[in-house]
Design a protein around this nucleic acid. Structure first.
Lengths: 360, 360
DNA sequence: CTGAAAGCGCTAACAT
DNA sequence: ATGTTAGCGCTTTCAG
């Protein structure tokens, strides 16, 4: 360790050291370094020099103790995978940095107990919390959320008063996709491969399917095959659909992984997609555009979810209490090859837009 | 907010409140709740009850101020994408939780200045740091790392004494893959699509290629086409390789994204992979197994990197100073279809192993 | 076994 | 404009 400065000892410099070095009181040092004015330009300068010389950095714990502010927000997340997780964090982190906030992350929770512990551990370390967790409901929050810690819930079914929640428009996205399949693409009927019944996203997507069907194909009977969001279940659902007697013209899978499995099933059976049967998914996972045929799907702007949630929380922190409402973030329908939209076959498909490298 | 407890006021309970409630001194409360003994079972019980009734949770700031421990470790990460980022955090987070440590994350740094700021902001908030950043070198650390903050560097070229660094065996992985291509798969020569010269991973992978070539194909001239880790550059490199007069039998791309682009180029030219030309990548991104033909590649155990790094840091925190050495984590060669290993075409390729859902 | 008291490093009144 | 002082909530000697 380099020790070129004159008065540097092995211990970390405190505000007292700086005060002594600059020949002023600790109060002046505090004022000067916090830029609250009330100091001569001259003394300010002397203090700055002293601080630099001593490599003084204020102790956050001490500061927090008295200001009651940590400038840290906590993010409570479940066991998330790939793109979703990284995009979410990126959105949150970027917005947080822009506001000078730190990010305390606790992910990979595997149960209610686990989540509760993580939550408790954040007590006193954060000014507010961002929560995205299947384990968290109203009761849980009542029981575990430390008093008056501003909190924003993401993608939560919670609709009670007083909670600030930010949702993804799963219903609207599903609706729009099914509408597209039914109208623009002109398929007579659409089957749904649903996700697990217990999953909120799954429920909402199914709702969107039902509504779109009711609106645009009211006399066509609903055709729902149960899946569970896994590729395997999509494969099985695909085979089940193949076995149906009047085979549906189009299939909407409640997520891309199931669409993937379903696509294999169709290919395996020798069907051409989309000519013989159309297909669409939900999520727009990176693989979607690389499949052949490339998968039409619904894209969720995850980073945006993170960013918005943080902005919301920041507003709460600043006392803008009107933010305790429920709000929803839109999705975008991404039309690629599998849904068989007859129109757009113009561009010679150049998949080589420059992308950011995956590597470090 | 529910307020069923008797003595609960609106303010947060402090240790004093608990002491009063239990009719003991604050010292006893501290001892009791920290399980250091020195308290009668009876008083301990009384204190516990009082604490529960008051919903008392110790203030971490105050505790840190005196114990000089935050039980938090900071993770400084660059702008990372997808799988890599999420796996890394998962590995770190899981290991941290297991040790009762919190995780302060700061990612998405876009330059040296940015990284330095983030680092300074962690001062006093963390007991140690995990750093993975292209901006961080010895000088940077000298200048910005707060004194005596134990630190573990990940994937860093730094080899100086006194730093604890954990690397991915990029060189070994590349070596093994090229060896496989040359020997097991029996290809006479292998071309390399290299990554950006400034990138450490890239350099190491190229080194592995060179060494394997020197060992297993010493009289074959090196054939290196420059890329930059993007899909686009892989595509262009692929075309460049196609234009070579005696076309190489196999191509090793320094990452999967480039392999992807290269594969398109080959397909576009009507070549069959691996019959006409073999191909392999590096990283094992999720897409790799879904390509057709599926991509042979080198798999990096990223979560393991995170876990190991944290374990290392924890050891440092516990005073096991022997951990200030350099260590390396192995990679695994994953043989799929593109590299044309003539042997293993036995299994009827069932891609439907159950996988965890991508969704929330 | 328990309590009184001294700070940890900092900020924020309150003096001067 | 600057200094003095009283804590923030907690742990930890040191007495009893």
């Amino acid at each position: 360790m380099p020790c070129d400065a004159a008065t540097v000892t092995t211990k970390k410099a405190t505000i007292k050291d700086v005060a002594r070095e600059a020949k002023v009181s600790v109060a002046s040092v505090s004022r000067a370094l916090n830029g609250q004015g009330g100091v001569t330009a001259e003394t300010l300068d002397r203090i700055r020099v002293a601080a630099k010389r001593l490599r003084y950095i204020p102790d956050n714990a001490a500061r927090s103790l008295i200001t009651r502010r940590t400038h840290t927000i906590g993010a409570l997340l479940p066991d998330l995978y790939g793109e979703f997780f990284s995009e979410l964090i990126r959105g949150i982190d970027l917005a947080a940095r822009a506001r000078g906030l730190q990010l305390l992350v606790s992910s990979s929770h595997d149960g209610v107990e686990d989540a509760a512990n993580a939550m408790r551990a954040m007590q006193g370390r954060v000014d507010g919390m961002l929560i995205l967790s299947p384990w968290v409901d109203a009761d849980f929050l009542q029981a575990n959320l430390p008093e008056d810690v501003p909190t924003v819930l993401m993608n939560s079914p919670l609709d009670a008063d007083g909670w600030s929640v930010l949702n993804i428009d799963n219903r609207g996205g599903a609706y729009a996709m099914v509408q597209h399949l039914l109208t623009t693409a002109g398929h007579a009927d659409v089957a749904l491969i649903s996700g697990p019944g217990s999953n909120y996203d799954s429920q909402q997507r199914e709702l969107g399917y039902r509504e779109a069907m009711a609106t645009f194909a009211s006399r066509v009977p609903l055709n729902i095959v149960q899946g569970n969001f896994t590729e395997q279940s999509g494969y099985e659902a695909g085979r089940a659909i193949l076995a149906q007697s009047p085979r549906p013209r189009a299939v909407f899978a409640a997520n891309d992984m199931m669409a993937l499995g379903c696509l294999y099933a169709f290919k395996e059976a020798g069907l051409r997609v989309p000519q013989d049967i159309a297909l669409a998914g939900f999520d727009d996972i990176p693989i979607a555009r690389y499949l052949s045929p490339s998968l039409s799907t619904v894209s969720v702007h995850i980073a945006e979810l993170g960013r918005s949630a943080l902005e919301r929380l920041a507003a709460l922190l600043d006392g803008h209490a009107q933010s305790t409402t429920s709000d929803t973030l839109g999705c975008a329908v991404v039309i690629r090859e599998t849904c068989g939209s007859s129109r757009d076959d113009a561009s010679p498909k150049n998949p080589y837009q420059p992308k950011s490298p995956t590597d470090v």
